[in-house]
Design a protein around this nucleic acid. Structure first.
Lengths: 180, 180
DNA sequence: ACTGCTTATACAACGGATTGCGCAGGCACA
DNA sequence: TGTGCCTGCGCAATCCGTTGTATAAGCAGT
């Protein structure tokens, strides 16, 4: 149950709306902890009830009104407490990997197609992370070092995945050529 | 909802008990899809009702009796159908990574301690995967190539994580020395 | 004109997942 | 003799997460 803590971490340096947070979860932090907007709005509601965050209503024209959330002292205290406790073990759900493990029964061509799509996605992500990392390297404040580490994790992860994908491709192509 | 498919993949080459599967989920496949024994027993019950798997009761002495599960033709068909459909996007929940992102508020020493423990775990995992991979390389049947790829993923992943951990250590130690 | 994307928030229902508990015997170690 | 760990199976409650649906307005492309 630490979606709340991920939200608090994001609110640590900036005031943000639920929508802003949802976008961040879709990009940078998403690699590490994913959440949809429904989850986020719900959690923000709970955090507000518990005085961990406060918001101010901001009317906009052209666009719908929004609520800009900010972390409170109580929220910051909760975050510090959580940081002291040992982290829960990481959980993963990667269906594509399960497929590769069971690929003996699969059609290699279909899998190769899916692999190509994923390679495409990962390459785009890698480029994004690298661009973000370069931005951060220029402005080095106290907090940006840790944001940079998160990006480095993303970069190393994409690179490792892409290297692995090449090994998968070789095996699948070999399987294909032996079928005919 | 593809815990069922992960189970079917594991049962593809071997007859196994719920306990056996739980161990595999804790080790090899666990990197990619995790599940606890409660989930596994529940799912095996459902799969059995739907004739995707069958089991035979095996009495043991010294140890409790067990049920050895085997995949059925219907189960294999379901697996093939699933392999054809595009995989659901991967989901991650890595609390430690969230911590690093929010480390500006954390106590660097506590985090370093946790990092050391995780490095230890990852190194052990890496050694296990490498040993398993060497075993598989000797006996190269049709199916073992895909199992080998799963292990390769595990190996590359641990290596990338360990490289990243060194970067984290540097930053944390630097933060520490500037505090005093 | 129509379709679809973007900004913005939110409820309801269902199913999946985690946590807690319980049983049961054997083996090893102190 | 007690404690803890390994082998094995399972139920119940609750919590988390996903999917579907709703509203509302603007802007871009076909």
């Amino acid at each position: 149950m630490s979606l709340r803590h991920a939200i608090l971490v994001l609110l640590q340096d900036e005031e943000a709306s639920g929508y802003d947070l949802a976008r961040e979860f879709a990009n940078s932090i998403g690699l590490v902890w994913n959440a949809t907007h429904q989850q986020i709005y719900l959690e923000l509601g709970k955090l507000n009830e518990q005085n961990m965050v406060h918001y101010r209503h901001v009317p906009q024209d052209g666009k719908p009104d929004k609520k800009l959330y900010r972390i409170t002292d109580e929220g910051r205290q909760e975050l510090v407490r959580w940081l002291r406790r040992p982290a829960a073990p990481a959980r993963v759900r990667d269906a594509f990997m399960v497929k590769v493990a069971g690929a003996a029964l699969a059609d290699p061509e279909t899998l190769l197609g899916e692999l190509d799509q994923l390679v495409q996605q990962r390459k785009e992500r890698l480029a994004n992370f690298e661009a973000e990392a370069r931005k951060l390297e220029r402005q080095s404040e106290g907090n940006s070092r840790f944001q940079h580490l998160t990006l480095r994790r993303g970069i190393l992860d994409q690179e490792a995945w892409l290297a692995w994908a090449e090994e998968v491709r070789e095996v699948l192509e070999d399987t294909l050529s032996h079928q005919h």
